[in-house]
Design a protein around this nucleic acid. Structure first.
Lengths: 246, 246
DNA sequence: GAGTGGTCTAGACCACATT
DNA sequence: ATGTGGTCTAGACCACTCA
């Protein structure tokens, strides 16, 4: 049971991806779209707002919506798994669990996962490879309630996300990512085959279910040169924006 | 002449910041807000959508909007200028143009800015400070058509974004950001006062007008430890549900 | 069961862009 | 002058939450 505005947004995304609305061209007017889909203009505007937020189209008062790009590439706004992302880029993903141990959450972990202090967690150290080359060292802390499902996975499991989706349904819905840079420590250097002190891109992330229940929190360190994170954004998504510094 | 929904959004932001709606509390219902401001529910929903996108509030069908945090975190989903972001965090932003020169676009620049080969561009090297400390080295390439407006700005201009907004109207509407890590080069090290080879967070970004016309492309290098980029996302469309204050 | 947010409608007026 | 998107209204129904 999808909503009308979601269906219309999806239809427009497909039309743009297929080239029926090439980059640089104008979309039909809101009134025309409303007519074509048999809905009111408000519903069409709801659909267009989604594409606006994705940066797929632009708009100016008085002129029609313009197609700006065909499809967002790898983007943090899509919560994709490492394996999915790798395959989308034509690479062969791999992975290996180096360590896996149960323990109790420390203060920070408990806060991130919204667990009581000293709650049980599962810590996993995993290296991820792209075409055989190690590119990512992943330190993940899973909340206790999901730990069993994770421990049952094989050590060389290609996609934890996919495996959990199959066994437990859609577990990941929301994510918060913090990105910064840091120097490789001893373990990082050894596992990623770089020199100690060389720059790494760090992504600290926490993901949660649709209800907002945290599932895992992780510290991912990427070898530079192999992976770039992209974010596309827009001020027009919602009419906030506007400056006025005080 | 500000729109009603912007006024209401601003009033709600102030009320949240002032503690009149503490974190964890529920906002008045949409109907109550509509009544209080003398507008229809649709207008109130437009205002709430802005706060939703900023991550200030969350919503669930059937329950009232919840206050999630008092101030929006630095997020790539908001296109804010360095100066605005710094002030929001209670810091004093500064900046200095180190170099500014006209030239012709190389192949990569021309592609990013969608200009013909050898088109005229303006290259600016700028250091940005937070409370007097250099934290960001910015190499920006402006398209020729905006170069005049940029060159007229004072070298110690605090906010280029703001200055351009005042003189040229809303110039920045869409952005694409690519994040990775790299080692500080000689110039980076000197200007950011770090050792050569120490890790930096690099953000390569291109911003465009609402019509999709590229304005500038930049290579920003951040000293680590000072700045963290955050991205919040969701598998669902816009709704930005939960949050976690640090 | 009452209240609330999510969705949708069918109008309307204005500011802006294009012709 | 006409068409377009931006804004706003005053309703309506449904799915959901909560007491």
């Amino acid at each position: 049971m999808t909503r009308r505005h979601q269906q219309i947004a999806e239809a427009l995304r497909r039309a743009i991806a297929d080239g029926r609305h090439p980059v640089g061209s104008a979309l039909p007017s809101e009134a025309q779209l409303a007519d074509a889909h048999g809905v009111s203009r408000g519903t069409v505007r709801q659909a267009l707002a989604a594409l606006l937020a994705e940066g797929l189209i632009g708009s100016r008062q008085g002129a029609r919506h313009l197609v700006l790009s065909t499809a967002p590439g790898q983007s943090l706004t899509e919560l994709r798994s490492f394996a999915r992302w790798a395959r989308a880029g034509g690479h062969r993903p791999g992975g290996q669990v180096l360590d896996s141990a149960r323990g109790t959450a420390d203060g920070e972990e408990a806060a991130l996962l919204q667990l009581p202090p000293d709650a049980e967690v599962l810590r996993v150290l995993r290296v991820r490879t792209l075409d055989g080359e190690p590119v990512l060292l992943e330190r993940t802390v899973y909340a206790g309630w999901i730990a069993d499902a994770v421990e049952e996975l094989p050590a060389d499991c290609e996609s934890v996300t996919q495996a959990l989706l199959d066994s437990r349904g859609p577990v990941f819905a929301h994510g918060e990512h913090h990105l910064d840079a840091l120097a490789a420590g001893t373990v990082d250097a050894q596992k990623l085959r770089v020199r100690r002190g060389s720059p790494l891109l760090r992504v600290r992330r926490t993901t949660a279910t649709a209800e907002g229940r945290p599932v895992e929190t992780a510290d991912d360190r990427y070898r530079p040169g192999e992976v770039v994170f992209s974010v596309r954004n827009s001020t027009q998504a919602n009419p906030l924006a506007r400056a006025r510094a005080d």
